[in-house]
Amino acid sequence: MHPAFRRFLPLVDGRFALQIYLPIADLPVNMFLLLGMGLAIGYISGMFGIGGGFLLTPLLIFIGISPAVAVASVSPQIAASVFTGFLYYWRRRSIDFALGGMLLVGGIFGTALGVWFFTFLRAMDQLDLFIGLSYVTLLSIVGAIMIYESIRAELRARRGGPATLRRPGSHNWLHGLPFKLRFKRSKIYVSAIPVWGIGLIIGFVGAVLGIGGGFLLVPMLIYFLRVPTATVIGTSMMLTVITMASATLLHAVDNHLVDALLALLLMIGGVIGAQFGARTSQNMRGERLRLLLGLMVFAVGMRFAYDLVVTPEDLYSLRLVRGQ
């Protein structure tokens, strides 16, 4: 361990450690551990311009918070950190509200569907398995693609070739669908069907897995809808803020699993960490950043795979169905 960090160790496990009791997770945890995790994930999210849910939710599960509570409580944390970014892009007028609104039509519906599905899986005692399997699939595929892409770009740059990839063609089959709409700010003319579809997928995945979905949404908007870089981040944040806020609300109403205290600690760490992360990213090359993020995403995916495959310590587990 780096000696600079050793100074902070007493805060985590020494006599200065401040234990707090998480009311919904039903677990005493160290306050500084949660603030530190929020800071670290916030730093990463600021560095890469992502919400960080796909790293934060797994981390909470790894420290012993039940997957159900982790997913439900990360939603407000993502809403908070993404709202900060949303306001920033709003001031810079780089949000396409018309496109964001159309995405939301699908997004809200997807979120509601996701929370319903979450409740259903929990009743079937298969929620943890589903979350585990989804994270393995999602994170290892996305991680592998990111690693591959960034290594290829790095090699290309070394050979002295053009650093940018081939620009995707201006038309694909999605552009042949009906219900065409013109989005002036993004300067695109696309069918409403893929817009709703993307919103639906992001809303659904976000509610079930506790991720904002920015790392899926931004590539989808670029590749499928040809949304220009000027509006893509701000518009994706508009969708994420609202789907995550709705997910918080629905999880609170349907499952009573949102731990507000846990969310608050993560938020405080998160918004502060994001500021430092954003500064660091300005001094780092884009391809390096992508490679780093790809490796991180892939590693988390592998950890989930390991947990699914290795023989559990105890084959039996309890779940409280109904108290007094």
């Binding site: 407000p76 944390q77 809403a79 908070a80 950190s81 993404v82 709202f83 900060t84 949303f86 306001l87 920033y88 001031r91 810079r92 803020v241 995550m244 806020a245 918080t248 609300l249 629905l250 999880h251 609170a252 109403v253 349907d254 009573h256 949102v258 507000a260 969310a263 608050l264 938020m267 405080i268 918004v271 502060i272 994001a274 500021q275 954003a278």
Partner: peptide, 26 residues
Amino acid sequence: GLLYGLGTTAMALAIGWLASVVFRRD
């Protein structure tokens, strides 16, 4: 549940807004 959810959501947005004011970059 509903009131609690609304409260948590409001808290999230308030903290997000506060951060954007405190750490204003532009």
